[in-house]
Design a binder for these strands. Structure first.
Lengths: 338, 338
DNA sequence: CTGTTAGCGCTTTCAT
DNA sequence: ATGAAAGCGCTAACAG
């Protein structure tokens, strides 16, 4: 059996209270501290976090549940969160739901049972039972990439309606009129429906512009490729496509330009969302809507820590960022020539 | 204060033992089960995992510590691990070290304190104190993307020497002779030094071939771009580059072909490593060395679970996969024309 | 400043 | 089948 605090105390010739004090940095006598440290080393003692947490009632872990770690956008969010958390001695536990409500709920329940210090959450569906349960609980929650809505939770988000509007307005300003939006699954996330809403608004402002929606079963490169293959064969193709994220856009690009013979942007203009690192290096450099991903993660943890320390003022509860249009060759004849 | 098992028992009119039995699926009387479930629902009771684990001594969490979640290769490993773990009711806690030994150690210590059921680890440095500590501990460890070496840990890995050999042999067979290898930081991982070793072997087999090594401070798109910018200005450029991962290769491609005027593969041939989804959609479709990432993660958890259930035979302790050469335009005049 | 001790919430054994 | 009670390893309050 592993050594426990009692063993360390015996080995060092002190009491358990003293060992606990050393462990928690409230010991003062250098000689004692040294003896305890030596004993810990000698016995290979590792503190039992379950016992510590049970007694202390708090935890040094922060949960981060995102839609998909495979999406570099969320990887960047995680990096930002980790950086801010580490500065205060917290650890970030990452869960990836794959937009599956079952898995999302499983993670939330697990983290709730673990009594994590707080939960950072990009919900697949804010109205799901699992999400509501954690929102109703006493666990501090920061919604990430999701507006506060009716909940009392803090929120760090980017305006997706504006992003969708920026993307499609740009396509329209390039003279395109038959716009298609490629989204995720039908039971899609708030992000995607907001981007779509922004797209609709942009189209509504131009009389002869039309908008069609193509749903996929996942927001991945693979799913994008599948759509691209269909689009390539289709008789009445749209003249511009707004992909709801860069993964889909990259997949579209693969199918259209590499496997097919559709020229981008000449035959079909394309813009993605997130501006992941790969966008600039795509076969046709990909126009996109940039979001401050790392900053989002950083700010989310910052808000959570403030909440834990009760230094949260009303105006601090929500941080909204704005998306930014990045024009590259995939949507602009000018950029393509340049 | 949150409801505890005692409150549930009182509310349901049964004893705590009975509630515990219901919670753990060993209750038999349907009426009792229903009453307990109703009470749990009514009180919003959530089991305290710390107490449960303290008493039971076991945990349903598996830790996965990788070099970089921002690398789609590791994201895929995580996906595979998660899938296998979920099948047995385990949760995967993900930590990303960023190849930083301090952070790696912090994660390992944290997970050790949490008494996770097991650790899946891609070490930044197998010989670091933190890694040795967990290897010496009683926590089951599966090394991921790392051969077993001297340790007693299980291991799931891909032969990187072979991968490096495949990559550079291919460049040589295309007639290139002045090969450069772009690696990570000098205190680099085993994977990268093995890939380099394979590259050296391939070069050694061709009399007039030379090999140079370019180190970067991170294995990211950004670092690759920086190298590409230097390379582009350099008077005596190599005629072929083997990038130690696809992220570096994509960054190189950005700098060389989009920001610079180096033609790939005509002026400089390029091959990456991992065959991430983006490789096929790069500005010049990227040749790469494919690794079975998802399968790696899946198998790692499978091995861990077998170990936990004592169904591990000697020949099961190690699973070695083989890398596969994927030729695209970036390294092959033929593929570029095709 | 150090040592002793009462629980934290749960599981599980042992009576009933 | 159900209820009572003993601890899991730790922290913090209190006594020395």
């Amino acid at each position: 059996m592993a050594a426990k605090i009692k063993d360390v105390a015996a080995h060092a010739g002190v009491s358990v209270g003293t060992v606990s004090n050393v462990l928690n940095g409230r010991a003062r006598v250098p000689g004692t501290i040294d003896r305890v440290r030596t004993a810990i080393e000698a016995l290979g003692y590792v503190r039992n976090d379950a016992a510590r947490q049970l007694r202390a009632g708090r935890s040094r872990s922060i949960a981060l549940v995102v839609l998909d770690v495979g999406n570099p956008f969320f990887a960047a969010v995680a990096r930002g969160a980790e950086a801010r958390a580490a500065a205060d001695g917290y650890v970030v536990l990452l869960g990836s739901s794959g937009q599956d409500i079952k898995r999302e709920t499983a993670y939330l329940d697990q983290f709730h049972e673990q009594r994590v210090a707080g939960v950072l959450l990009t919900p697949a569906d804010v109205h799901s039972v699992g999400v509501q349960r954690v929102l109703d609980s006493s666990t501090p929650v920061v919604l990430v990439d999701e507006p506060p809505g009716a909940s009392k939770a803090c929120s760090v988000w980017v305006d997706d309606v504006e992003g969708g509007y920026l993307a499609v307005s740009h396509l329209l300003s390039e003279g395109r009129r038959r716009i298609a939006v490629v989204t995720g699954p039908s039971s899609t996330t708030r992000q995607v429906s907001d981007r779509l809403e922004g797209a609709r608004r942009a189209v509504a402002a131009v009389p002869d512009a039309t908008l069609s929606v193509i749903e996929t079963d996942a927001m991945t490169v693979l799913a994008g490729r599948a759509v691209g293959e269909r689009l390539q064969l289709s008789a009445d193709r749209p003249d511009a496509v707004f992909a709801a994220n860069d993964l889909l856009a990259v997949g579209l690009l693969q199918a259209l330009t590499l496997m097919g013979d559709v020229r981008v942007p000449e035959d079909m203009s394309l813009i993605g969302y997130d501006d992941i690192d790969f966008a600039a290096a795509a076969v046709v450099p990909l126009s996109s809507i940039r979001q401050p991903a790392t900053e989002l993660g950083w700010t989310a943890v910052d808000l959570l820590l403030r909440q834990l320390n009760d230094e949260l003022t009303a105006e601090n509860r929500e941080r909204r960022f704005r998306p930014e249009l990045v024009i590259r060759s995939s949507s602009s004849a000018a950029a393509a020539r340049g």
